[in-house]
Design a protein around this nucleic acid. Structure first.
Lengths: 201, 201
DNA sequence: AGACTATCCGGACTATAGTCCGTTTCATGT
DNA sequence: ACATGAAACGGACTATAGTCCGGATAGTCT
């Protein structure tokens, strides 16, 4: 892993692009901004944009990155129930609530980053972190198939789904946090033997 | 609801397009076919394509539709455990397994239909059916928040996620069916511990 | 049959994401 | 300072999804 320091012009342009994108997204909304717009506003060629960020989703990821790292820090070294110290099930519920909050504050940006290309959601560094955390907690909580269930839980936290709950079904964030935390806890349990008699049908 | 019968030329072209699309997808793979290709192969203008199917995802939906209706029939009127008669938890597990199977046989097509536009997955008629079915079963199984948990389960059955499990993580279908059925059953359970969504820390 | 109208058809046109490659700039070693 | 090679730049170019609207057509009514 040979690490080459970033060249001065590259650093300058990276900052320019990030600042321009933030400005434009704030002004016209994520949907109303094209990559040409960003390049023009940043005073940079389109090739530069793509060289550095890969695609439109990559640009969104870069903008989101900073705030996500803050939550990651709190998970790794912060106070319980988010950080270490609380029982895994409690930490899981706390994670769900905080993650929902984080996503909700920048919904369109996260939606862009996750839907720019199929499978984009599953390929970001941040997603690997969330997945690892959920896997660990589910494992500690003695859940069966913790890896699979971590993915299932995170699928429910996909921006597309959250947008649907919030904007199409008009649910409120707090209820989502409650309901999904509860579901996450349910996922920590090994299911008992099927209920004995079903009289309803 | 005034129902106007389909005009003869419209019907003819609809069939032409569907046949052409099927041919091309089979020959060159879903990713290697453009809408212009489909229009040309069908001997039809592009406007016709879009008038009828809305967008690329809509075309995929139309192609998928037939097989999905078959599973829907089996759920509504078929034999248990898929159809009525078995306990809801059992039916839920059966649904998960059969749905996975169905999707896996036409993965790329379903992926296209769900990722053509953000939120497309949640807007198809078929999805409304699956959601209603899962809601009903979870409700019957006395699961808390059956609606939310139905969405969570179906999020885990999104094509994007299944593709990831199958192609990136090399899981096998049978294990997915087992693991997700088990997770679905876990979701039918009430959670013993009360969740706390205190964000103040 | 002939006129009439709602619907449909088709392909040129637009918008935008993403690529390519000749040119420029930076960092380093002399 | 200057030469040099690697890395970055930029904007013209390509590919493809999706729109638009003048003209054609099917079904209906008299």
């Amino acid at each position: 892993m040979e690490v080459v320091p970033e060249r001065a012009d590259a650093a300058r342009n990276r900052l320019r692009v990030l600042a321009a994108a933030e400005r434009l997204f704030a002004a016209r909304g994520v949907a109303g901004v094209t990559m040409d717009d960003v390049a023009a506003e940043a005073g940079v060629g389109k090739g530069t944009l793509y060289r550095r960020f890969g695609d439109k989703g990559g640009l969104a990821v870069a903008l989101i990155d900073e705030r996500e790292r803050e939550l990651q820090q709190r998970i790794l070294t912060g106070a319980p129930p988010l950080g270490p110290g609380a029982p895994p099930a409690t930490r899981l519920a706390a994670f769900v609530a905080h993650y929902l909050d984080l996503v909700a504050t920048q919904l369109d940006l996260v939606l862009l980053s996750e839907t720019a290309t199929p499978g984009a959601r599953l390929r970001t560094g941040a997603h690997a972190f969330w997945r690892q955390h959920c896997r660990y907690l589910l494992h500690e909580a003695r859940a069966p198939e913790p890896d699979l269930r971590a993915d299932l839980l995170l699928a429910g936290l996909a921006a597309e789904q959250i947008v649907h709950w919030l904007r199409d079904e008009h649910r409120v964030l707090a209820d989502l946090a409650d309901g999904l935390s509860s579901a996450a806890l349910a996922l920590t349990n090994r299911q008992p033997v099927a209920p004995s008699h079903d009289l309803s049908t």
